[in-house]
Amino acid sequence: MARFKSSAWGLAVAIALVALVLPLMLPSYALATECLIFAMAALGCNLLLGRLGLLSFGQAIFFGAGAYCVGILSLRFGTGIVAGLLAATAVSALLAVAIGWLATQRTGVYLIMLTLALSQMFFFLCYAAPDVTGGDNGLMNIPRPNLAFGGHELLSLASPFAFYVFVATICTVAFYLMARLIASPFGATLEAIRDNEDRAVAIGYDTRLYKVIAFVAAGAVTGLAGGLYALALKFVPLANVDLAMSERIIVMTILGGTNALFGSMLGSIAVVVLSYVLSDIWARWQIILGALLVAVALYLRGGLASLLDKAVARANEGARP
């Protein structure tokens, strides 16, 4: 019991430390904020891929839905920030019930293809509904409300620093909750399904229900990330729901590694920082990113997190005389 709690707390502490150090290493709070937001998006994908072995090309649905939800509520109805983000989480979770229920009708490549089809469908729906989503132009000039409770303003989120602290807090809590989830009996069952679904059914688990619930958890955290992204950019581009966004989230997840949740943080930082640094130096920087992805697939299957594991192991060995 103590160990289980400490592992979730340990992850929360690690995430908080990263959040503390990140702004010192990066040139702006905006960039650090983006790292944390995409870490949360990758966290959802990590749950599905790492715990269940399900690869979803539909993560942009949840990310985009969360962003549109906050954008529309904030722009049209002047909804507060907490209510807006809660709504984004809830809407994405509801969408995830539908997407998860449909996608888990099939397994393997057919599941991947289903998520791809649903994702493209959602993209063209958003594209075809400019009254709601702004279509190709997206939603512009989204106000970022201050943190308020019962009409009392608690904290202004206007400054990049204040907003970063707000995002860092949410991100830490999200990683903590996800760690609790995968360490729970529910998480154990997900691993059993990944290992041998047939057997999990035979000992009495309704495995599809578990998969759908995992989709809901993944959708919720990804939708929350999308909502925060809308507030960070003060803009919701159509690109939030396109296939490239799903691919970006998948790349961050696999690059970071799916054996540990912390990998999602590493994957997000790697992609966000790499694109920032390299795009300044060379417009065709994506050649380097592409080559890196090939190298990771071939030579570093556990992702960046496994590199960290090895480094820690070596340090421990070195410490011992």
Partner: peptide, 16 residues
């Protein structure tokens, strides 16, 4: 390789 790594590698190749 598992499907996820095939996708990662070929996504990288496509990008290059």
């Amino acid at each position: 390789l598992p499907a996820s790594l095939q996708i990662l590698a070929t996504l990288g190749l496509a990008l290059v």
